[in-house]
């Protein structure tokens, strides 16, 4: 038996919003420690990893490990039927071929349940090594979204260049060149408005705008986003899911052939 109840159901709605453009189907791996998902986009350029810890749920029961393969477009359609303040429960029997989503209004006066077929997905799992990144940049998630959106007008790629002074995002194309520089904030009233840089060495890497734009669909999840970079390894774009987990996107850099 698997059952996970989340009073803050809108977190789950937001997680789905942040995945559905990148992935069409994926497996949710459930264990007594929580729920995890790891999947690559169709072209195998990027990887998404989601963690929802058991202690972040209001009720969590997972008697035996199970992998629930789901069509994320269908899951997203179902979660869109939940109101933002609904309590969401996900339930499945052991070795079941379907999953049930229960949405309760906060006053318990409306209860809806939706059943969805599970899929057998044969998915590759990649081992992500622990890495000490050369540069770790934290900035407001909405600012990052805006920068990527603005620079996507100029070209297909964004160059992210990090030094001690700050971080520079650049794009070039037929209409011209765009550069956006963010300095580390000296002092801010609100922590979520800060730009902070932890740097071991300067790094400059080039990434495809198309994917960065899809990653920023997770902006609704968290006030801040963390970018971790090292020379010639994938960028990590991380959004926290409340205090229960994270969505991490990994994107391979563009490298000289």
């Amino acid at each position: 038996m698997f059952e996970a109840r989340l009073v803050q159901g809108n977190l789950l709605k937001k997680v789905l919003e942040s995945l559905k453009d990148l992935l069409t189907e994926a497996s949710w791996d459930c264990a007594d420690t929580g729920i995890q998902l790891q999947a690559m986009d169709n072209s195998h350029v990027s990887l998404v990893s989601v963690q929802l810890r058991a202690d972040g749920f209001d009720k969590f029961r997972c008697d035996r490990q199970l992998s629930m393969g789901m069509n994320l477009t269908s899951m997203s359609k179902i979660l869109r039927c939940a109101a933002n303040d609904d309590i969401i429960t996900i339930k499945a029997q052991d070795q079941a071929d379907n999953v049930t989503f229960v949405f309760e209004s906060p006053n318990q006066e409306k209860v809806a349940d939706y059943e969805m077929k599970l899929m057998n997905l044969d998915q590759e799992h990649l081992g992500i090594p622990e890495t000490d990144y050369a540069a770790v940049i934290k900035l407001p998630a909405a600012e990052f979204q805006r920068i990527i959106k603005d620079l996507s007008q100029f070209g297909e790629s964004v160059v992210i260049s990090c030094t001690k002074e700050g971080v520079k995002f650049s794009a070039a194309g037929d209409i011209g060149v765009g550069n956006i520089k963010l300095a580390q904030t000296a002092s801010v009233d609100k922590e979520e408005e800060a730009v902070t840089i932890e740097m071991q060495e300067p790094v400059t890497l080039t990434f495809a705008c198309r994917y960065l734009n899809m990653f920023t669909k997770a902006t609704c999840l968290a006030p801040q986003v963390t970018l971790s970079m090292s020379p010639e390894v994938p960028l990590v774009v991380e959004y926290k899911i409340g205090d229960m987990g994270h969505v991490r996107y990994y994107l391979a850099p563009k490298i000289e052939d």
């Binding site: 690559m40 072209s43 195998h44 350029v45 990027s46 990887l47 590759e124 799992h125 990649l126 081992g127 992500i128 090594p129 790629s157 080039t206 495809a208 390894v233 994938p234 990994y250 994107l251 391979a252 850099p253 563009k254 490298i255 000289e256 052939d257």
Partner: peptide, 14 residues
């Protein structure tokens, strides 16, 4: 010219 590498080139299969 810069080329997009697949993520599978950076992470090993488990």
């Amino acid at each position: 010219e810069q080329a997009q590498k697949p993520i599978t080139q950076f992470f090993s299969q488990q």
